[in-house]
Computed example of a mutant assay.
Amino acid sequence: MESVTIRNPGMYWDIAANIHFPPDFNAGKQYPAVISNHPIGSCKEQTSGNVYGAALAKAGFVVIVPDASFQGGSGGQPRWIEDPEQRVKDYRDVIDYAQSLPYVDANRIGILGICGGGGYSIKAAIIDKRIKALVSITGVNFGRLMREGFSNFDPVGALQGMATQRTAENDGTEERTNIFLPASVEEGKAAGITDIDVLEATDYYRHRCPAVGSGTRMLVSHATSAVAWDAFAFAETLLTQPMMLVFGDKPGGFGAYRDGMEIYGRAASKNKELVVVEGWSHYDLYDNPVPTGIALDRVIPFLKSHLDEASVSGFAKAAE
């Protein structure tokens, strides 16, 4: 694995990323590449890197795993902004970088995202046809979540609160961040939290896989763009790439089951696959060896099939 910095064109900071290489990597050859994108509040060292990135590299792909701007090892101020449009821009900038690498086949690039990173990856595929195959792992439409559960189903009230906070910060008040999760599962249960996604997220981020770059937080005054954003807009006409959607059948409050079914039905893709992992939940698909193994047994052949030279050539001709 190699850690790199990627210039963010038009911005004043770099994107931090890890590149995972296939076994017996030969820089004189060209490989298909996958951009693997972390969940909201996560970082490149967690599931997008240490589970899916590592497995895809072992299967023969060059895998680039970036940190979001304003988060983890990437630059950008103020910290902990969660801006969906910037996230999609980050992914496109990482694709620019991947295409500049002599050992990456510029015409064989796929994208994979987990949770919010899955929703962002869907939007990236809608607008960027350099992406030849798309995989969403327990993907979530963050805009929908912001308008619903994350705003207590009062998006206008949330926007008014964000406006008030931003005005206060302009007058010198300290920035305020929302911490997504309680300090422990026990604390969450004591506070009356029963949702499986929140409790299992707490177990994952606070206990199973803590990481320095994982913030699990969001700057309140800069969250307005997320409320008015939609990962799935224009999917009926513009989402045409081969697509695989993976999620568990134990639904939780973050809505991956619902969002997965919705985008499967709406996407214009002629080649789209649903993988519903029975008996498992959203966060089981982050690092539990059994359900992630089930997912990877489907994801790896899918990406190999659609990122081989013949498939990419056929896709390009069909798009002309």
Rank of each mutant, 00 (worst) to 15 (best):
G255L: 00
T216F: 12
L181P: 00
D154S: 07
N18K: 14
E175H: 15
E200H: 08
D93A: 14
R87D: 15
V220G: 03
A233F: 13
F142R: 03
G73Q: 09
D83V: 12
Q165T: 13
G139D: 07
R130L: 02
F25Y: 09
R208M: 12
E85Y: 12
N288A: 15
M261D: 01
A231Y: 10
N37K: 06
G172F: 09
R144I: 06
L101C: 09
M244Y: 10
F142C: 10
M146W: 05
I122P: 03
A231K: 09
G76I: 14
P289G: 10
M261I: 07
P102I: 03
T237S: 12
F315S: 13
L303W: 08
A68L: 11
G143H: 06
P210W: 09
D105K: 05
T194C: 05
H207D: 15
H222C: 15
V140E: 02
V94Q: 05
Y52E: 05
C115G: 03
G76L: 09
Y97Q: 07
D230M: 05
I109W: 03
G73W: 07
G293A: 08
L112H: 06
R144W: 11
V290C: 04
L159F: 03
P102W: 01
L238S: 14
I126Y: 00
L56R: 05
Y120D: 07
A228L: 13
S311Q: 11
M162P: 02
P210K: 11
R108T: 12
A124D: 05
S281K: 04
D297K: 13
A125P: 09
D230E: 06
E320W: 10
N37Q: 13
E273D: 11
V290I: 14
A54C: 11
S305I: 14
L181M: 06
Y31M: 02
F302P: 03
H20I: 04
G49N: 04
V227N: 02
G213D: 09
V156S: 11
V220P: 01
Q46F: 07
F234S: 13
F234V: 11
I15N: 04
A190E: 13
I109S: 02
I193E: 04
V185K: 07
T47L: 13
L199E: 01
A27C: 08
S184K: 04
D171Y: 12
E200P: 10
G75W: 01
E236M: 06
R130P: 00
S42C: 06
V277T: 08
A133P: 02
Y103M: 04
Y120M: 12
W80F: 15
F150M: 15
I126Q: 00
Y283E: 07
D259C: 00
R258I: 09
S136G: 05
